[in-house]
Design a protein around this nucleic acid. Structure first.
Length: 347
DNA sequence: CACGCGTGGTA
DNA sequence: TTACCAAGCGT
């Protein structure tokens, strides 16, 4: 790699991290299970968002055994609002693998830990370096941004193959005596100093060893291509309440978007089209509707698509078909954010 | 490899 | 408002 300041870079980064690191809940433990949970929650998710979820999760599932035994609906309720719900199912599957195949001890080597569901190259390296002090790379978006600037790497970080370049770089740079602080230091630097826009170079502990800073244009890095094409879908959503106060719910399929989450019945219609007729709803869900009133209309944006939701409150006769719940029971069901919005409005 | 998979914050 | 993100992984 031909980077002349390895020793100085390590020392400056580790010392900065030790003195400036944020006080975060998962930094009070070296329990590999807890580090694992924190790393999964942090995937594509902001620190401030994760903190309350992590704390609540550890109150309910302080050990790997308790998580392994949890009913999936109870687990998903703890993940409700955090997004990427397959992370929760994969985490539980991974924990069960550890109990079955490794005697309840999280593996301390990349080969075995990488076999666990939901543990990819980044998460493996993070657990190994933070919990076990192993000199393993943990390359995420922060690390690629920081090192693209420090080393002036112009490869497109949106391309999967580019990550190999950064993993190789970390393998050379990593401080073998302080693997945890080194890896976390790179990420903390990316989060606090070496930010995507307007990096705070004058506060950076490694600016003297940064090629982009010395070259003058750290904001031009990293190079990142790739645009996302959005799909738009429109639905009518029906909060159908019978004369006994029970409300009709449905569970989403076990694969795909919002898998296994609960929702009020939804019927898709093409853009700008008329609302679903009461007759169509009655036919689809086998209920007799007495009254219908508009609830709220709003847009919900996912990473790769948007929903236009028009919601209605229906009064119906009791029915034997479908899943009907009391208001108290609905509070226990894991629901995605757009359904929670409708629910909060109705209450 | 490209794409599917949530949500809330920010320029 | 649109765009782009923020500690990725599975398929």
């Amino acid at each position: 790699m031909n980077y002349p300041y390895v020793a100085e870079f390590r020392r400056a980064l580790v010392e900065w991290f030790e003195s400036e690191k944020r006080d975060l809940p998962w930094r009070h433990t070296k329990d590999p299970y807890k580090i694992w949970v924190s790393e999964v929650m942090l995937q594509q998710t902001r620190v401030d968002t994760v903190i309350p979820y992590y704390n609540r999760f550890m109150e309910s599932f302080p050990t790997l055994e308790l998580l392994a035994e949890a009913p999936q609906e109870y687990l998903l309720k703890h993940w409700e609002g955090l997004g990427y719900y397959s992370r929760a199912r994969n985490l539980q599957a991974g924990v069960r693998e550890v109990l079955e195949n490794y005697g309840g001890i999280v593996p301390d080597n990349r080969h075995e830990i990488s076999k666990l569901k939901g543990v990819g190259p980044y998460t493996a390296g993070a657990i190994l370096s933070i919990a076990y002090n192993k000199p393993e790379h943990a390359v995420d978006g922060n690390v690629m941004r920081v090192l693209s600037r420090v080393l002036e790497i112009h490869e497109d970080i949106a391309l999967p193959k580019t990550k190999k370049i950064f993993e190789a770089a970390v393998e050379e740079l990593i401080d073998p005596e302080h693997t945890s602080s080194f890896n976390q230091g790179l990420m903390e630097l990316g989060a606090l100093i070496c930010t995507p826009t307007s990096p705070k170079c004058l506060l950076c502990p490694v600016r003297e060893y940064c090629k982009a800073f010395n070259g003058g244009e750290p904001e031009k890095l990293p190079v990142k291509s790739k645009k996302v094409k959005m799909k738009h879908l429109s639905y009518d959503v029906f909060v159908c309440e019978d004369t006994e106060g029970r409300i009709l719910m449905e569970q989403r399929p076990e694969k795909g978007l919002l898998a296994n989450m609960w929702q009020f019945p939804m019927i898709e219609h093409d853009e700008e089209a008329t609302l679903t007729t009461q007759a169509i709803f009655e036919a689809n869900y086998h209920v007799h509707v007495n009254k219908q009133q508009e609830l709220m209309k709003f847009k919900h944006v996912f990473s790769h698509l948007t929903w236009q939701l028009n919601s209605y409150h229906l009064q119906s006769e009791p029915s034997q078909c479908g899943h009907w719940f009391t208001r108290e029971q609905i509070e226990m069901l894991p629901m995605p954010v757009p359904m929670l919005k409708i629910w909060e409005t109705l209450k």
